[in-house]
Design a protein around this nucleic acid. Structure first.
Lengths: 191, 191
DNA sequence: TTTTATACTAAAAAATAATTTTAGTATAGA
DNA sequence: TCTATACTAAAATTATTTTTTAGTATAAAA
């Protein structure tokens, strides 16, 4: 009961933020479309900003979860990193709120939004780090500083998030990402 | 004579665009500060947008030139890539117009601005490609597809351009970049 | 208790109108 | 070739009014 209400609120809020942006979506509209009284929204979340942040948080969690699933599905460590990259690009690209709003938006968002965005990055680092650690444990990888490497690699992958990227031909990007993975695995050095 | 005029115009225009943005800089002000008649600016450049694009173009050339110098200065191919990354971060970070305007700006810029930005990227790719080719020729590197690799690596470096990056402690970023270079050279794989 | 429907207010946004700046042109003279 | 000046139509800015909206309160219903 209780869960269904807040679920419904966040769901419709998410859809509307994605479509019309934060500012152009009113609490009254959300209440109407979610078939909930306005007061209920304030009972649950207290303010419009907190509704937005909750939506954002859930989206971040969903992205990370989906990427994690794609990674864990692979048995071989060497395939996990490739799976990570592929899933990352796929789910980041279709993430409605964070990207369509955060990227496009010259909108004023609550300051906590930046914190949540950073959380996403940190969790990406965490995921990569776990892959690298696994590789270290089974002797596949060798690294002096796993944490540093994880951060460096995370930053590198962000280079593919840029504006123009997501509408470019997916095939091309797959090529770039594939090549980057290959380089990250084997390096440039001739053996 | 002729050169000095247009030089002076572009120089002051560049400074003002960087400080106040494209929209908040007027041609009249530029003329005044450059000690040039307004009509002269229109004689040389024809429109405000073209003044801006010229400024942008020169800035792109300057960035690439400076990075190139830093790269060419190194004798060893293996040091060239590291020099590239270091110089790239240094000069991109302090690039007045493209970055301070392009990054910050929710300003409407003429569509050609995007083309020039792409040119910068293509020239970065070109530079990296020349380094990789050199490495291939002297047997240091091995790659199936140099061009693809150059593009992939270029994208990866862009991951460090992000908003928050340039005010973070330079030391940290140097660490990340250094680690990334190490990985790109040697790969993750244990030998 | 929890939710709803309604009514309300202060603040923000949107719309409108009045005013000022500014891009771009023309011209006459140095 | 460049300057100084004057000009205009369009855009930007400002000031003002109107509408919308976030957030609260309340009383009744579930």
């Amino acid at each position: 009961m209780k869960k269904e209400k807040s679920e419904s609120i966040l769901e419709t809020a998410g859809r509307m933020f994605a479509r019309y942006g934060l500012k152009k979506t009113s609490i009254d509209e959300i209440a109407q479309l979610a078939r909930v009284a306005k007061a209920t929204i304030y009972n649950y979340f207290g303010s419009k900003d907190r509704v937005y942040l909750e939506v954002l948080k859930r989206e971040v969690n969903e992205i990370i979860d989906r990427i994690s699933v794609s990674v864990v599905r692979e048995k071989l460590t060497e395939k996990k990193l490739a799976a990570y990259v592929k899933a990352r690009f796929k789910y980041m690209g279709s993430a409605l709120n964070i990207l369509n709003l955060e990227r496009e938006g010259c909108e004023k968002k609550p300051p906590e939004a930046g914190i949540i965005r950073n959380e996403l990055f940190e969790r990406e680092v965490q995921l990569i780090r776990s892959i690298l650690n696994e590789g270290m444990e089974n002797g596949l990888f060798y690294l002096n500083d796993v944490h540093l490497a994880a951060r460096a690699i995370s930053h590198a992958f962000r280079g593919f998030d840029q504006e123009g990227m997501f509408q470019e031909h997916t095939e091309k990007i797959d090529n770039y990402l594939g090549e980057l993975i290959r380089i990250i695995f084997s390096g440039l050095r001739a053996r």
